[in-house]
């Protein structure tokens, strides 16, 4: 693993909270992305990814420094996300209005590049459509597809995150890919 990350984690293990802030900075986007893709909304994604970091902090003693930190934090985050999906209450989506505002949906809260308004609209529709398709997948295929195609993890790493043999990971990715293909074809 990256020597810098190792050094930071050793500091965190000694109880240095400032070092933990550096660790959060390094991994927040990856973790937030996994949580968002799993859950499909910003609010829950923030909830789950913050909870994942809190758990990482309180359980840092049990973390093996010789393994990849990303694998460990992804594992915590995906487990929390899957738990949340199981208990899921009524949904809310990116296109829902933010409470107490007009014309402000959750997309406007996602930072993006400055583009022409029409491009932004098309971009939003495209992105929304992709996320909707991902949300149609059963959670166990969803997690495998997200880790493979959005986080670029290897099959072996996905196996470590999801605590599954590589053969099972392959099956889930095959089925997830097939399910998406059938829908996207229409």
């Amino acid at each position: 693993m990256d020597a810098t990350v190792k050094k930071i984690i050793i500091e965190v293990k000694k109880g240095n909270q400032q070092a933990f802030a550096e660790l959060v900075e390094l991994y927040k986007d990856k973790v937030f992305q996994v949580a968002y893709r799993m859950l499909g909304n910003v609010h829950e994604a923030q909830d789950i990814s913050q909870e994942a970091f809190l758990r990482a902090y309180t359980n840092i003693e049990s973390y093996d420094i010789n393994r990849k930190f990303s694998t460990w934090i992804f594992r915590i985050a995906t487990n929390l996300a899957i738990d949340r999906i199981r208990k899921k209450k009524p949904d809310f989506h990116l296109e829902d209005q933010v409470a107490g505002t007009e014309d402000l949906d959750y997309y406007s809260q996602i930072p993006g590049d400055d583009e022409l308004p029409e491009d932004v609209v098309v971009q939003h529709e495209m992105q929304e459509w992709i996320q909707d398709e991902i949300m149609m997948l059963p959670p166990k295929y969803r997690s495998a597809i997200i880790l493979k195609y959005m986080e670029d993890l290897s099959l072996k790493e996905i196996g470590e995150v999801l605590n599954l043999p590589v053969a099972t990971v392959k099956t889930r990715i095959h089925r997830g890919r097939e399910a998406l293909r059938k829908r996207l074809r229409d």
Partner: peptide, 16 residues
């Protein structure tokens, strides 16, 4: 082609 999602700006502060 799905765009990379970034954590909100105050994310780290919230965690801390």
């Amino acid at each position: 082609s799905a765009s990379h999602i970034e954590a909100p700006a105050d994310f780290t502060a919230q965690v801390m």
